[in-house]
Write a protein that binds this DNA or RNA. Structure first.
Lengths: 142, 142
DNA sequence: ATCAAGTAATTTGATTATCAAACAATGTGG
DNA sequence: CCACATTGTTTGATAATCAAATTACTTGAT
């Protein structure tokens, strides 16, 4: 096993651990906000990216549109999102956050920010900037 | 809004995006492996950390022990894990991967490694090492 | 212009995931 | 020894999920 291979492995496992920890944190935090993980995920994506079509949203969530229809039904009922039929394509439905949905997003985002601050507390400013560049690069390539 | 605050915000959103993308990737990939997301998560944690008690496992997954009992029932039925009552504490139950479970872990880990390679393809060696150090630090502080 | 094939969302039926609360078995600290 | 805490399971209810069928609409080829 080459040294490079080992480094890739180490990075891989560090990423997996990071993901698992975030996932566990998210799951725990979400209950206190009175919503399910799936719901917060949806709100999170709409909050970060703005309104989008069902199909696009389902892809970003990694679920089928059938599942998403049920999910959005619940979110509409909870007053967090609204449906709007698309003007370009009358098959499509745009989903967007309501005022209340944006509020929930902001609240959740604030919790994330606190966590981020705790995680990067020992980073100096230059390191923080480099971390941001790394993350941006990771995100851009998948 | 100070410059530092903005940097924290940017890092925060980059982390959230990273998490969402991983989550979506995981959800999509998992189906092709013939298991659910929850099941793979469990296998992933046991594979990375070795055998552990129900409570500990539930904590790492961010779910209740009640949910985990059902989950482990299914995994046992699928031949992926086994239960073993603890010697120290007779209330406790240790869960560990079977041969088949380890195989599934290895297979899934390989998919992660491929993704990691794609994500870090544009990183040179020094950057890779720094990325690993950053990830290790992030993981150690939460 | 028409029609076949493709795409978007919903519905349906079945399974899985989840929680809170109640319970049984075991450990712990006075 | 006993009150209290902890571990795992069970139970009953709800939410999340998929695949497949359906409906409505778009697109492309002829």
């Amino acid at each position: 096993m080459s040294a490079e291979y080992q480094l890739d492995q180490d990075i891989n496992h560090a990423i997996i651990e990071f993901y698992e920890r975030l996932s566990s944190w998210e799951q725990s935090v979400v209950r206190d906000q009175g919503a399910s993980l799936a719901q917060i995920h949806t709100v999170e994506i709409l909050g970060a990216n703005g309104a989008m079509r069902m199909k696009e949203l389902a892809d970003k969530l990694g679920i089928t549109t059938g599942t998403l229809t049920v999910q959005v039904d619940r979110l509409v009922k909870a007053g967090l999102v609204v449906r709007q039929s698309s003007v370009n394509d009358r098959r499509s439905v745009e989903v967007q956050l309501t005022e209340k949905g944006q509020q929930m997003f902001a609240e959740h985002d604030q919790l994330h920010l606190q966590l981020t601050r705790e995680m990067t507390a020992v980073f100096d400013d230059a390191e923080r900037q480099q971390l941001l560049r790394f993350l941006a690069r990771l995100n851009s390539t998948f």
